[in-house]
Design a protein around this nucleic acid. Structure first.
Lengths: 314, 314
DNA sequence: ATAATTATTTGACTATGTCAAGTATCAGTC
DNA sequence: GACTGATACTTGACATAGTCAAATAATTAT
């Protein structure tokens, strides 16, 4: 689909560079583990079993990428030391149900604590900003290297903080440029709305929700005061990788509950007809289309839509 | 200094999660390597030697985190197969200078190509946006996990693209909040300036330079038209981790050369007296302080400074 | 000249990872 | 209810990787 470009080779170089870096780093982490009575493999296996009691050998082997034979012997050692119990599974006698014994659980807890302390030492020199950035970077890298269906539980909604407006501006500008070909004019508009929000923010009647997954921003929704009785929803977006987990619904629900709570009689919003998913969301929440209007913005011919929801009717 | 907080434990969890993820991933990459006639360690050693001819065993061992004994044997194997030449170093006869033979270079090139292709396959499903983000995330993670003095050569100056204004807004807001305690008002101001820049951008007489390292934004400087003969520098900043490599100088030089080239007679800028490093930079470039003015902004009592440079005098 | 230090090698391990062949069980089929 | 092909795990036989301590040789410091 996408032809190989220089951007490609830059990313390849980045991944390879990081792999070398991390291999070296993991080598260090690995060595330290030997202060405990466990080898790295034993520790990893114990981790899996402690966190997923009743799992089978095959499952552990697949998840850790271990050879079944190697795992079989590793398990034997753990069983011999009284850390793991291996029982025939009731449903399928080929399988062995694996559980950690109380001693195994204690050993795992000690390992877990040691590992946490080790990482904490590694992060000691970072300030809060650096730590946030690191967490977000690692989460993003992981997500990009291994796309997986993300569960709704991983996402949190939180109020805005310093730096969020800029991040949202960048994210929305890139998202709509990628998906609809909108130009920089849109980024300017978002920046203006965001700036206005900061300047005129009334915490008593307005709110911004940032959707976040492991420190990485995944979306946003704003509720601002249009008049005493009318609230307006603004800057709604959700990254493509965060879609399909019911987040749009959750954001909108949260926002409408707030609006209702603050005594607004009506909620309005402006969007464009090409944003099909968003429109469906508004419809389902009870919004009705008030007016449509063709306009030329962001380098495209668009149709703007004004939607409205009567809160009293709910 | 900083007390352990929940943010800490979140980052620790993020690092551990990523480590598990990457260990599994590397396990996969590692296995594939066996299609070649080299073991992982041999490949890594060959990589080092091919990229740094004349290096010594100790150096390789340190950089790869290998045991000297292990390395000694690995080298023996490579020498036996005619891939590496081991000679007594002229300066120090304890040392062995290591160089790849032509056969070794060829073998390395094949490995290198295979590795690149493998990573390319891993990235095949990502679009340009995802690739950029991945590269930037990995670079940031690496930088944060292992702070090191960065060389000027790693940074590039490029013109702005979609999303950059938002990123710069976020970065500046966070930087000045962290270092000087400025509040959201500053973020609003930056967003407004950035929006105005996009809306009124005149490529013929204005420019924005983004400083970037491996896809991660490290700073910016803007030159905008104040009048036909007067240009104004705006939104100058440099991340703390990018300082000390002479980048400030490089950015300003680039910017002033552009201003001169476009025929401006004068360049002006506004800053605050607490930004000591920036002030020194302007002074050294020949700017003179025109006027100072106390003001209360961004939640602090500040002293604004107006600087000016006569380009004709240069 | 002697002692301490540094770079590398060697010996004797243990741990890790690989591959193929083997055993027991299961699910479906005639 | 015996046969067939999968599946879950084990075992044997190795090759590679990593550890630790002692040995060798050259260099630097005193």
């Amino acid at each position: 689909m996408t032809a190989p470009t220089t951007a490609d080779s830059r990313t390849i170089a980045a991944v390879r560079h990081f792999t070398r870096f991390f291999t070296r780093r993991i080598g260090v982490l690995r060595r330290r583990l030997y202060a405990s009575p466990f080898s790295l493999v034993e520790a990893r296996v114990l981790y899996e079993i402690a966190n997923r009691p009743g799992t089978s050998a095959g499952e552990v082997a697949r998840d850790l990428g271990l050879d079944p034979g190697q795992l079989s012997r590793t398990l034997e050692g753990l069983v011999r030391r009284g850390l793991v119990r291996r029982r025939r599974a009731a449903a399928d006698a080929r399988r062995h149900a694996l559980t950690a014994t109380p001693r195994g659980v204690a050993a795992f807890a000690a390992l877990d604590r040691a590992s946490r302390e080790e990482v904490a030492a590694l992060l000691a020199s970072l300030d809060a900003d650096g730590r946030d950035r690191l967490a977000a970077s690692l989460a993003a890298a992981e997500r990009l290297l291994e796309p997986a269906r993300l569960s709704a539980g991983e996402f949190v909604l939180r109020p805005h903080a310093i730096g969020d407006m800029g991040m949202i501006t960048a994210a929305q500008a890139r998202l709509y440029a990628r998906e609809y070909g909108w130009n920089g004019e849109f980024e300017a508009l978002v920046a203006e709305i965001a700036a206005k929000f900061i300047r005129e923010f009334d915490p008593a009647r307005e709110h911004c929700w940032i959707v976040e997954r492991r420190g990485e921003i995944a979306g946003s929704i704003f509720l601002v005061k249009e008049s005493e009785s009318v609230a307006k929803i603004r800057l709604v977006y959700l990254e493509s990788w965060a879609r399909g987990a019911g987040l749009g619904r959750r954001m909108l629900d949260e926002c409408l509950a707030f609006a209702h709570d603050k005594g607004y009689a009506k909620v309005v919003l402006w969007t464009n007809d090409c944003l099909v998913d968003a429109r469906r969301l508004y419809e389902r929440a009870g919004f009705v289309l008030v007016r449509s209007e063709a306009h030329h913005s962001f380098g495209k011919d668009l149709v703007g839509q004004y939607w409205s929801l009567d809160l009293a009717a709910r």
